[in-house]
Computed example of a mutant assay.
Amino acid sequence: MPASQESDDVAGHVSGDPADFQDPAYREAVVDLLGAISYGEISAFERLAEDAKMAPTIRDKVALASMAAAELGHVGRLHDRLTELGADPFEAMAGFIEPIEKFHRHTAPSDWYEGLVKAYVGDGMAADFYREIAAYLDAATRDLVIASLDDSGQSEFVVERIRNAIAAQPALGGRLALWGRRLMGEALTQAQRVAAERDALSALLAGGVDRPGLDLAAIGRMFTRITERHEERMAELGLAS
């Protein structure tokens, strides 16, 4: 997709005016988004810590535990922002527990390698979805969201381990490629469901009288961009998507 098309989708939609928070619908959308990301970070922490038990070496165990710690480290700033907005962080997260846990129930890895692929491409797709929504937020909130989704270069560990594993066991590549496609399908389903079921987020994307939004074509392009980024990650892992 041309870069100009992506910029056209968000042009004029990004607001840096704190007065936006005087709009109850906008505030609710921000609270929803920060709540979703917060619980996603906590869930990722739990999953990575659990996956570390399958690590074949102490080095791998420490690397995955460090990734888990980084996920949890983002939660404090998100909760601080929610508190500043007058929201209870735990109430803000409550509505996202079931859809996020449902995704994890449907995509439980069977071994170490599937866990690594999920940590890289599954979490990557979720981050892409939240970044897309963040493009419609005020500058301060947008910057916080983007910072909370930064992997701090830890993805290099996953890419190295998966590429080395495929080089040693070529047959592994086919299984992990299928796994990656399953992750993509489940992630897109859950992302679309969250966007549709949360009225405030839907309103933020759809726009209003004084806030332009995405039409159906632009929403389609948004999910196309997310899919393309997934394919890029799969390629980085040495997997055909």
Results as ranks from 00 to 15, higher is better:
residue 38 S to V: 02
residue 42 I to T: 12
residue 42 I to E: 15
residue 42 I to N: 06
residue 45 F to I: 02
residue 45 F to A: 08
residue 45 F to S: 07
residue 46 E to N: 13
residue 47 R to T: 14
residue 50 E to D: 14
residue 52 A to E: 10
residue 53 K to Y: 08
residue 54 M to Y: 05
residue 54 M to T: 15
residue 56 P to S: 10
residue 56 P to V: 09
residue 56 P to I: 10
residue 56 P to A: 06
residue 57 T to D: 10
residue 58 I to T: 11
residue 60 D to W: 03
residue 61 K to E: 14
residue 61 K to C: 10
residue 63 A to E: 12
residue 63 A to V: 02
residue 66 S to W: 03
residue 67 M to I: 03
residue 67 M to P: 04
residue 69 A to Q: 13
residue 71 E to K: 15
residue 71 E to V: 03
residue 73 G to H: 08
residue 75 V to A: 08
residue 75 V to C: 11
residue 77 R to E: 13
residue 78 L to Y: 04
residue 78 L to V: 03
residue 78 L to K: 03
residue 79 H to Y: 08
residue 80 D to P: 01
residue 80 D to S: 14
residue 80 D to L: 11
residue 81 R to E: 12
residue 82 L to V: 03
residue 83 T to M: 06
residue 85 L to M: 11
residue 85 L to N: 05
residue 88 D to H: 07
residue 89 P to I: 05
residue 89 P to C: 09
residue 90 F to H: 12
residue 90 F to P: 00
residue 90 F to D: 11
residue 91 E to I: 11
residue 91 E to Y: 04
residue 92 A to K: 08
residue 93 M to P: 01
residue 94 A to T: 04
residue 94 A to S: 14
residue 95 G to V: 03
residue 95 G to A: 12
residue 98 E to C: 00
residue 99 P to T: 00
residue 99 P to V: 00
residue 100 I to E: 05
residue 100 I to R: 01
residue 101 E to S: 07
residue 101 E to M: 02
residue 102 K to E: 00
residue 102 K to Y: 00
residue 102 K to S: 03
residue 103 F to P: 01
residue 103 F to S: 04
residue 105 R to C: 02
residue 107 T to M: 11
residue 107 T to S: 15
residue 108 A to S: 10
residue 108 A to T: 14
residue 109 P to A: 07
residue 110 S to P: 01
residue 111 D to P: 12
residue 112 W to Q: 05
residue 112 W to R: 05
residue 115 G to C: 05
residue 116 L to R: 08
residue 116 L to K: 08
residue 117 V to L: 09
residue 117 V to D: 10
residue 118 K to L: 14
residue 120 Y to W: 07
residue 120 Y to R: 09
residue 122 G to N: 02
residue 123 D to G: 15
residue 127 A to E: 05
residue 128 D to Q: 15
residue 128 D to L: 07
residue 129 F to S: 10
residue 134 A to R: 04
